[in-house]
Design a protein around this nucleic acid. Sequence first.
DNA 1: GCCGGTCGTCGAAGCGCTTCGACACTCTCT
DNA 2: AGAGAGTGTCGAAGCGCTTCGACGACCGGC
Lengths: 334, 334
Amino acid sequence: MSRRTVTISEVAKHAGVAVSTVSYVLSGKRTISADTRRRVLDSISALGYHPNAGARALASKRSNVIALVLPLRAGMHVPVLMRFASAVVTAARRFDHDVLLLTADEGTAGIRRVAASALVDALVLMDVELDDRRVPLLRELAEPSVLIGFPAEPAGLTCVDLDFGVAGARCVEHLAERGHEEIALLGAPSVVYDRGTGFATRTREGFEIAVADHGLKGVALPCEETFDEVYETVRDLLLDHPSLSGLVVHNEAAVGHVLAALRQLDRRVPHDMAVIAICPDDVAERASPPLTSVLIPAEEVGREAVRLVMDKLEGRTVPDSTLLTPLLAVRSST
Amino acid sequence: MSRRTVTISEVAKHAGVAVSTVSYVLSGKRTISADTRRRVLDSISALGYHPNAGARALASKRSNVIALVLPLRAGMHVPVLMRFASAVVTAARRFDHDVLLLTADEGTAGIRRVAASALVDALVLMDVELDDRRVPLLRELAEPSVLIGFPAEPAGLTCVDLDFGVAGARCVEHLAERGHEEIALLGAPSVVYDRGTGFATRTREGFEIAVADHGLKGVALPCEETFDEVYETVRDLLLDHPSLSGLVVHNEAAVGHVLAALRQLDRRVPHDMAVIAICPDDVAERASPPLTSVLIPAEEVGREAVRLVMDKLEGRTVPDSTLLTPLLAVRSST
DNA sequence: GCCGGTCGTCGAAGCGCTTCGACACTCTCT
DNA sequence: AGAGAGTGTCGAAGCGCTTCGACGACCGGC
């Protein structure tokens, strides 16, 4: 059992200074002589002092906690989502903040609650839908927020994401360069499109525009996540489009199944069918063959979201929209 | 932009009572007349009052936040982990608590920090290893904690988990009843065993003991998560054990690949090979064919962990060890 | 040698809440 | 009728921290 909790005034007494001096040593908000600082820091570690979070929040009106709103909806690929989440936590710690986890079951009430009670200073929201119920609430909140993803009407909000439109287009471009003339996009499960999740839609748009620009033939289909469904989708696709020679897969859960299905249907990758994925790097690398891919930079997006929200917290103005440029890595599948 | 924040004294003034009366209405710690309570509650909703979390934490020495320590280590199946995590968040809200998310990158320092600063009242730890570095720290902390999973030396700790030993045994028993005489366990990736993660080891032990008890032949192997590795493992297994007729799979990520591999190797399930999985219910149901399984009751485990930690917070004594009994659901794969 | 400026430190006033003791009532029992 | 035991409410004292204004001490410039 640890000793009873040490307060700032005990540190002050131990160091022979005023309480406020200790506070200023810790915050650096006033100049303190090197000598005094040393004594204070020594006392702090001698006594094992940790500032009380509640007291600090009360006095400073800053909790040093941000909320991460993570709905975990059907059809979302949880491991990818968690990479974003994990990046947010790590980045928040860099700014000396902790992360409060909010899921969907309270709906918007949870967001309102943690904001109104000053439990959190700011919010980062994930899995944003085009018509997201959380968006109107964010506009009326005093606390700054950042969305990972874009709603249909992003005016007045701060959003960050990979530029999925460009990602879709880059895939098409790459396949066009390789001489493919008829290609297909296998996207997210249909439930994700139905819900109007921005990233899925924007990839498809980017794909379709680029297909037209390059004078290719192209079809975009949703894609479910069980092997049997993927197999059927791929089989039908090959039947309907016999000269199809390139596949863009934007669905982490289905990537492995698509490759397995092609194998069962006697299509060799990349010889008979070029495959390019939009997914985190390690998923592409672990596949066999390793996939040419546009990587989803989860760590970078999470870090950027936190940086933006911290900037807003400090009163700096930030761009409404931050789109990270997709990078294409060529591997053995195209 | 929301109005500036409302305090308890404004509520008191509006309702014509003392600040302490408002506090007692909210906490229920003293009797308040029905009439006064009504007026106070009316004022609260009229003004849109939310108690300030920092002030409350400072005065009451309770933050109403629990920490969820979630390392996200290699080889762990993230979707399953997140079901536990999600259950913990939901259950915590039932007790009027929020959840602070801690990942691994700070190591034990993060745990020490949030506990010492009174940011959290209690901790729930996931992904527990047999020789977990966090365990000694927990023993010296004043804050109560609960582990989801068991370390090698659980004395003095509160742990909750599915009884994986029994789960492994139940699978064997079920296959024995069906008349299978030579069976195999495909477990977690080898890195998980190397790390000494309890659930993997305990399932294997339960499997091995039950195999001996029923006089069967049985072999237990780790199992990686890419299709190619799974395929090789299964192929070699069939070569080495030609009369093998039953398979226990304790690896959510590999389940689909095992079924695909068997299909490619021309083994029909359940006709040529009975397959039983240890996994959450929906994974078993979505497989084709739907798998007989011992379900991992993630929601129940999460809920139980929170219930235990709340009991400890209230000073009630709780059992050191809570093992949930595994339930077997028979489907089409055995 | 005096004035105006930093520099370094202190004391005290809160921040918004919980909780303790006090107190005025209203009910029982005798 | 008076003691004793609740009820329901209030005021005030913190909880541990940040921050503001004040104030010596010391500096250089004239």
